[in-house]
Nucleic acid binder design. Sequence first.
DNA 1: CAACCTCATGTCAGTTCCTGTCATCACTTA
DNA 2: TAAGTGATGACAGGAACTGACATGAGGTTG
Lengths: 191, 191
Amino acid sequence: MGRWQPGTRARLHTAAVRLFTEHGYEETTAADIAEAAGVTERTFFRHFPDKREVLFDGQDRLIEAVARGVKEAPADAAPLDVAVSGVVAAVEFFDEERRPYARMRQLLVDAHPALQERERNKLAQLADVVHRGLLDRGVTDPAATLAAESAVVVFRSTIAQWLREDEQRPFDDIARETLASLRAVAGVPVG
Amino acid sequence: MGRWQPGTRARLHTAAVRLFTEHGYEETTAADIAEAAGVTERTFFRHFPDKREVLFDGQDRLIEAVARGVKEAPADAAPLDVAVSGVVAAVEFFDEERRPYARMRQLLVDAHPALQERERNKLAQLADVVHRGLLDRGVTDPAATLAAESAVVVFRSTIAQWLREDEQRPFDDIARETLASLRAVAGVPVG
DNA sequence: CAACCTCATGTCAGTTCCTGTCATCACTTA
DNA sequence: TAAGTGATGACAGGAACTGACATGAGGTTG
C-alpha cells in the first residue's frame, strides 16, 4: 500500500514527545503515536523495540561522541580524567538544537520511574563505552571499570547542575567543577 | 474460597526462581509462577507490582541494613567513607542463607537486559538511602550525591569481585580494597 | 521494457503483562 | 452472633508487544 515516507522514525519521535507532554506518558498509547505520525502501531514497533525507547532516539550519536572524547584525551592523563574527558565531549551533543528539547525531555523522564529505569540503562551503555576506551588505552580492569562508572556519576551530576543553572554556564566548565568536587568528596584534600 | 496460606509471597518467590532457572525468564509466565505456588495470576500481581520484582523480593532488608550502616559510621569520617560504610554493612545481608542463592540470581539477572535494568533501579534506591543518610549527617548536597553514587559504584565492583573470588574473602575486606582502588583511580594521593 | 529484488509498511491474529471490580471465605473483634 | 478485616478467586479488559504473510514502491538487471 502506502508509498514510502521519508523520516518515519523521526516523525514518530517528535509525535511521541508532543503527545507525551500534552497528555502524559501512560495516557499515550503506542497506537496513538503511530497514528499521529501517519503509520501503524506495527510500524512503530519496527522502529523502536519498545515504547520507552522512542524517547531515547538519537542517543547513539551521544555514545559515539563520548567514545571519540575518550580516544582523543591526552595520553598522559589519569584514568578518571580520561573518562571524564569522554563525557565532557558530550557537550557537542547538548550544544546543538537540542537545548530547549533537553529540559522538556528531562521533565518527562523524571516524572516516570519506567523512563528513569531506561535512562539508567543508557548511562550504563555510556559507562561501557568509556570502559572499553580505557581498556584500549591500556588501563587494567578493576581500575577501568571504576573510572568509567565514576565518570558517569560525574556526568549525571553535571547535567543536573547544568539544567539547574538554566544552561547558562558552559557544560564542560561545570563538568570540571564536578570532577573537583568528586575528588574532594573522595576524601583527601591535597593540592 | 481458599483458606489462608502462610508465606504466599515467599512461595511465589521461590517458585519463580526455580522456574526461571529451569525454563528461562521469558519462557516463564506470571501465570506459571502463580500456578506453581498454588495461587492465581491475580494474586501474584497483588504481591509484586510486576513480573521482574519477584526476583528482588527481600531487598528491603538490604536497604535497611545500608541505612543503618550509614547512621552508625564514625562521626569524623569523610563523606565517601561514610557512604561506603553503609554499603559495607550489606555484609550481614550476604552472610546469611543467601550465598548459594546470590550467584544463581546473579546469573539470571546478567542474562536478561530487562532484569539488569531493574537491578540498576534497586541500586539507585540504595544510592538514595545513602544520600539521605549523608544529608542527615550534615553533608551538603552536591557532595552528598556524589559520595552516595560513588559508594554504589564501589558496591557493584565489590560484589563482582567477591563473586569472582568465589566468596572466599570477607566482603568488607574487598570493599575497602575497592575503595582504595577508586581513590587511586581518581588520582587522590593516599594519606 | 519486463522480470526481479529489496525494503518499508499494512493487516491480522495471538500472547503476555497488568488492572479494576466484585464476590467469597477464614479469621478477628465487639 | 454480628460486623469488620484481609487475603484470595473469578472475570473482564486494555495496552504492550510478536510472528506470519501480503502489498506496493523503487531500484536493478537482463
